[in-house]
Structure formats: C-alpha cells, structure tokens
Simulated assay, not measured.
Amino acid sequence: MILDEPTIGLDVLSKQRLREFLIAERRERGTTLLLTTHDMGDIERLCERVLVVDHGRLAYDGTLGGLSTAVGAERVLTVDLDRPEPGLPTPPGTRAVGVQAGGLRHVFAFDTTGVTVGAVLADIARHAEIRDLTIAEPDIEDVVRRLYRSHRRP
C-alpha cells in the first residue's frame, strides 16, 4: 500500500484511527506500507524501517532507533535528588549538561551504545539518593535535521 502524507489535515482522533487501521492491516494481512511523510508521529508509530532521502540520494536506510545512533544523538537523563549534591560526579559514559536548584537536579546526556541507563543510575545512586528521574529520547525531527546537515556536502 503506497501512502503519501496520509494524515495531513486530519484531526487528532482521525489520525489515531487511521494509524490504528494501518497497523491492523499490516499485522492481519502482512501488508507492506510505503509511506512518504513529514509527519514524525506517523513515522514513529507506523514504521519499522526508515529511508531518508536528501535531494534524490539515500541518506539513511535502517531502523528509527538506528537513525539516532547514526547521527550521534543522545538520550538526556534528568535526576532529582533527595538532598542537594552540587559536586555529584559525572557518571562514566555520560556528559554533564547542567545542575539546577542548587544541586537538587542534575542533567546528563549519553549515547546508549556506550552505556546503559541502569549503569548510569547505579553510579549516581552510589553518591546520592535519587528521588525522581526522567529520560528524554532524542527528538526525531532534530535527528533528521542533523542527518541532512551531515549528508550535504559543503
């Protein structure tokens, strides 16, 4: 099934219903979807394999997760501590992004090919009590932008 910008102009509920239909169609009938779109939500929800074309040339062919790795995009871990720890050491395999609220909140960036979330958290827990955390995946639009920039010749 070939679809060109299938959810453009649809309201949120209609987008959801169309995506659910396409997922069910693929699962029940083994239908292959060829999707051309700029809607990153469609890509994240419908695609297992991603091809990025830049000015007629193939810039990437692989999984959506692999796309982030290909351009060196990082996950961002934000940890809130029980008590301020302004001198908290940076866990191995991470990059300190910032310290907020006098050391109550620490932000680290890391590439999951080099270190696991569990290892990072274990290292932090050796130095401080973790109250809460969030992990942000790389923004897919930023990842695609970075791919286009790296693919183009100066």
Rank of each mutant, 00 (worst) to 15 (best):
H55G: 07
V144N: 01
L121V: 11
L147S: 03
G72C: 07
A73V: 03
A70R: 15
R57D: 13
V117E: 12
G93Y: 06
R95Y: 02
I8R: 13
I130S: 05
L81P: 02
V143H: 09
T7R: 12
R152I: 05
T94L: 06
A24P: 00
V99W: 00
G30W: 14
L88A: 09
L33Q: 07
V76P: 12
I135E: 06
C47K: 10
V115T: 15
E48A: 05
V71T: 10
V52E: 03
T37V: 09
A119E: 15
G118E: 13
G30H: 12
L22W: 12
V97C: 05
R49V: 12
P89T: 09
P91W: 05
P6C: 08
E20F: 00
A59W: 08
T69Q: 12
L67C: 05
V50A: 07
R49G: 02
A24L: 11
T113W: 01
A119D: 15
R149Q: 14
R57Y: 02
E129G: 10
P84C: 11
R145D: 08
R131G: 02
V71L: 09
R153S: 13
G103P: 08
E85R: 15
V97R: 14
V71R: 13
Y60L: 09
L133I: 07
R57W: 00
G87T: 12
D142M: 01
D54I: 12
E137A: 13
G30Q: 11
T32P: 02
L33T: 04
H127W: 09
G102T: 04
R75Q: 15
G9M: 11
G65R: 14
D139C: 00
E48Q: 15
R75F: 08
L22P: 07
T31P: 01
G114P: 07
G56D: 10
F21M: 14
L35D: 09
D142N: 12
T37M: 05
D61Y: 04
V76D: 06
Y148P: 00
